[in-house]
Every structure is written in C-alpha cells, then in structure tokens.
Amino acid sequence: MNNLNWDEFKQHISDYVGVDAAEITESTDVYDDLYLDSLGLFGLGSHITETYQLNIPLSLVASISTVGEIFHLLNDKGTPIGG
C-alpha cells in the first residue's frame, strides 16, 4: 500500500480535469461526471502516475469507471517507477 492522501489525490484530479475538488468523490464517474472519454482517461492516468511516480497494471485500467477506483488501484497496486 502506498498511503496516498485522498484530498491531495482529488486535487490532482481537479487540476487535470478542471472540476472543483469539492465536487469530486470516490463515486464520481470519470465518463459521466468528469466528461472524459477513453483517451481522456488514459491522459488522466498518465498524469496521475507521473505525479505519484507509480505504475499500475494496464490490465486493471480497463475496468475503471470512478475516481475512487483510480485512487484505490494506485494506492493498493501501484509500484514505484524505475524501482
């Protein structure tokens, strides 16, 4: 586990998508609420993994649909880049 901070994480999401961090919850849908398509989700994933310097298994990314799922995937399964 990587011990990521939820408030900091959702601020990074907010900065990337331009939605107020106060409006982002674990159940915020990346497609319907943040208006991302699959390419946008890929861009967000790249932004977040670069920010935290963590890799996540691409095989698990296809099933993601909420911000909380991204957070838990990165927190639970993220491995340090280059390590």
Rank of each mutant, 00 (worst) to 15 (best):
L54H: 10
Q53S: 14
E50Y: 08
L41K: 04
N5Q: 06
G18L: 07
K77H: 11
V19E: 04
S14G: 03
H47V: 05
K77V: 11
T51R: 06
D32Y: 01
E26W: 04
W6T: 06
S38R: 00
S46R: 09
L74W: 12
I48Y: 03
E26V: 13
F71A: 01
L44Q: 13
V19D: 01
T51A: 08
G68L: 09
I48D: 04
G78P: 15
Y52A: 09
Y35E: 15
L36I: 05
I48G: 05
I64Y: 01
G78V: 15
F71D: 06
V61W: 14
Q11C: 14
S59C: 09
L74S: 14
V30R: 00
D20T: 12
V19K: 06
V17D: 00
N75K: 13
I56D: 03
L36E: 01
G68W: 14
G78N: 10
N75L: 06
V19S: 00
F42D: 01
T51H: 08
D15L: 07
S63F: 06
D76Q: 12
G40W: 04
D76K: 09
G45E: 01
N3H: 09
I48R: 02
D76T: 10
L74N: 10
K77W: 08
L44W: 04
D29C: 01
P57K: 02
I13R: 03
V67E: 02
S27L: 08
F9Y: 03
L74T: 14
G68N: 09
S63T: 15
V17N: 00
E26F: 07
L34T: 00
D7R: 10
L34C: 05
V19I: 12
V30T: 01
S14L: 05
D7T: 10
E69M: 10
E26A: 09
G43A: 10
A22R: 11
E69P: 12
A62L: 08
L74I: 15
L4Q: 02
Y52R: 12
A62T: 09
D76F: 01
F71N: 04
I81A: 14
V19F: 05
N3T: 11
V17M: 04
D37V: 12
V30P: 00
E23K: 15
T25Q: 02
F9S: 06
T28L: 03
S46A: 10
L54Q: 10
E69G: 13
Y52T: 11
D33Y: 00
H72Y: 15
L39C: 02
A62C: 07
Y31S: 01
P80I: 12
L34W: 08
A22M: 04
V30C: 05
S38M: 00
E69H: 09
E8D: 10
D33C: 02
T66C: 05
H72G: 14
E8Q: 07
